[in-house]
Every structure is written in C-alpha cells, then in structure tokens.
C-alpha cells in the first residue's frame, strides 16, 4: 500500500508549528486520507518547536473521529524532535480521555435480547 507523505513544514512555512489554523489544515488532509483508508506519514523534519494548540488541531482531533487502532494503523509520525515528544504525549493522552467512548453497562445482554 502506498503511504502518503505530508511535511509539516509545507503547512507552517516556518520551523515552528505554533498555529491552530495550520494544525487544522493538516487534520483536513489526514481526515481525507483516513476516510479512504490511506496511510499517511506525517513528517516533522526541520520543525523545531510545536505547541499544544497546533498538536490538538492536527493530531488530537483525530481521536474524535477515529479509534486508536485506526490511527495506529494509518498514521506514522516521522522526525519529530525528541524534546517535542512529551508534548505530543500530553496531547494524545488528553485526546484519548476526552473522546473515550463510553458504552452503557450490560451492552452484551441488550444485544441478546434484541436477537430474540
């Protein structure tokens, strides 16, 4: 399967990814690819600084629409500087918590009743 490459720097036109609006543009591209089940490599080469507003809009928001499994299989993050990783972790952990799917208790039993 072909993997689409997205370079963050093409969106930010700077070494700093500090705009939620740029993050939103990246989200749109990822969303477009994910709906077609296309894999994407998101490349952070040359990006020296990110902020949560950018990461929330580009990556965090994915969790509102896709499951963790889908994101793991479709998204590959490349060349993100080591000292930016704690921030990414914070954003992803928060997104998973915010968009956690909560199913009603005893869902399996309800299914059995419906089958009858």
């Amino acid at each position: 399967m072909i993997m689409i490459e997205l370079f963050v720097k093409d969106f930010t036109e700077s070494q700093r990814a500090i705009s939620a609006a740029d993050g939103e543009k990246i989200f749109q591209k990822l969303d477009e690819a994910f709906t077609k089940s296309e894999k994407v490599a998101l490349d952070f080469s040359e990006i020296k600084l990110t902020i949560t507003a950018f990461l929330n809009a580009s990556i965090g928001k994915l969790y509102s629409k896709y499951s963790t499994e889908q994101i793991r299989s479709l998204l590959h993050i490349r060349n993100l500087a080591k000292d930016e990783l704690p921030l990414l972790k914070m954003v992803i952990d928060r997104a998973k918590l915010r968009f956690k799917k909560e199913y009603p208790e005893g869902l399996d039993k309800i299914d059995l009743v419906n089958e009858d």
Binding site: T52, A53, N56, G60, K61, S64, M90, R94, R98, F99
Partner: peptide
Amino acid sequence: SGNTTKPETETGGLGLDL
C-alpha cells in the same frame, strides 16, 4: 488542566496548564 470551552469534537485545555 484539561478544562476547555472548545467544541465537543475538539480537544484542548493544556496550554495554560503547561
């Protein structure tokens, strides 16, 4: 931390805490 007024489809509430 984690408190945000963003729409339900968006995540936030980390900047000020950071």
